[in-house]
Design a binder for these strands. Structure first.
Lengths: 259, 259
DNA sequence: GCGTTTTTGATCGTTTTTGAAAGAAACGCA
DNA sequence: TGCGTTTCTTTCAAAAACGATCAAAAACGC
């Protein structure tokens, strides 16, 4: 049966606009009016609602995706200061994730970069203690499990003994860890003992432990000891790592990947 | 759609609507009226029933599948909607919190309002399954513990059996719970069984269980049963709650506060 | 068959959505 | 900067959809 131009329901129309913005990156009010056969007033109202819901960002004459916001671009640069290196490390790490894997994602900027690469990986199960990683994947992506625990404000991660509650009940194939410093003698260190506690718990039970750290962290030692090198299976870092350092780690049985 | 000469039975019609919504993703009241040859009043009643049974989600002019329901649109509408009432409810609830208390904060818009009022309460320990509540208190406020668990995207809460890991290790003086519907006969109900599971765990071990719900939720029944009224100690709602309702609850031993 | 309960359709007042119009603000260009 | 044009916000009224209520119709049990 052919419908004589059956009108579209309001929520359906808004969903249409939302996906259009997502696909095109930008839409114009006038285009929407012609395509959707409603008045500009209605279009504007729709955009207003969608903006309130955080689905898009209105601009003069139309709307753009949240990602396209200038503001956000600035912000992203900040988090990725050494963004080229950290981004490359994240991309390299991403290649290590197989289909259907269950992975743990530690807190930190490098691992956060990895989280951004997983938005389409609905095949994965992701365990994390990072609120930012969870926020990054809030709308789509893998199944997300958060470990509980005390919120450490500065890093926006969950730490401390309570984390054992959930961590004791799950297993991950691969754990991607961050660190504040790594050193041949002292192993891995971080600033907060509670944070270290979690990293240890994870490392203990993960099938494979993969450390993501830019070369700037090499030979840096922080306050809280996390673990020795034998807890680590793979190190993904950048090409500026001293060759002797890499060689020494490889002799200890680690796989060292330079992004 | 082909019509039998004889009228069809009501349950048969509803099943038809249900499968239509499932297939099409969206249906319009007017279309249903024409195809089913019944009045709009009947269609509306059918949709109402199907919605109560969790089979679909009503929207202005029709209905959509539960999967299609415009995610945050639903949630955010709620945060804005009766915001004055919810704000008052939150303020009233806030008065119940004593110095140094440990409190649990459930997910939902009303409890989120309460979270906003706690930014200066550094004396508290707050346990929550809500990422939004945690985000609200990300910079300052009480000590925050998050329970772990699977991330439920639509509500941005952690749900499911894994939550028992942390919840088993903590005790809270007061638990502030939200709900999708509360009803004298059916008690408390919500949309997701995993969500209900968490609410139950919390209610079981909290010193005092305080339900925050605007009167619009009264006599609404959702899909997943949470608990009976005897699990609740205090109900904080608004003045629009039918007096008989309040009276009946008080008779059952609940404290009913009208904000 | 008859009284009762359930279902249905109609009506009315209310809420939501929509489109139009007028003044304000932003933009492009000289 | 100033000016014309486009776009935006605000406001209002019409239209569509809604919930509540009531009476008629149908289904039901005995």
């Amino acid at each position: 049966m052919i419908q004589p131009a059956s009108p579209i329901l309001a929520p359906q129309r808004r969903e249409l606009i939302r996906s259009l913005v997502k696909d095109e990156g930008i839409v114009r009010v006038e285009d929407l009016r012609q395509n959707l056969k409603v008045s500009v007033a209605t279009i504007r109202r729709d955009l207003e609602i969608l903006e309130e819901n955080g689905k898009l960002q209105r601009i003069h004459g139309g709307a753009v995706t949240m990602e396209n916001r200038l503001e956000e671009a600035v912000f992203d640069d900040k988090t990725n200061q050494a963004s080229t290196e950290k981004g490359r490390i994240a991309e390299e790490a991403c290649k290590l994730i197989g289909k259907g894997d269950s992975v743990y994602l530690d807190g930190g900027s490098t691992t956060l970069g990895l989280a951004r690469l997983l938005k389409d990986r609905t095949d994965l199960t992701l365990v994390t203690n990072s609120l930012r990683a969870a926020a990054e994947l809030a709308d789509s992506g893998p199944k997300v499990l958060l470990i509980g625990g005390e919120l450490r404000r500065i890093s926006q991660t969950m730490v401390g003994p309570l984390t054992s509650g959930v961590l004791g009940q799950v297993h991950v194939d691969k754990a991607f860890m961050g660190t504040m410093g790594f050193c041949l003698r002292s192993g891995l260190t971080t600033t907060d003992p509670n944070e270290a506690y979690v990293k240890n718990l994870v490392a203990d039970q993960a099938g494979q432990v993969i450390l993501l750290a830019d070369s700037g962290k090499a030979e840096k030692v922080s306050f809280a000891r996390v673990s020795d090198w034998d807890a680590i299976d793979v190190l993904v870092t950048d090409g500026n790592l001293p060759k002797l350092f890499a060689k020494s780690l490889r002799k200890r049985g680690l796989k060292v990947l330079l992004a």
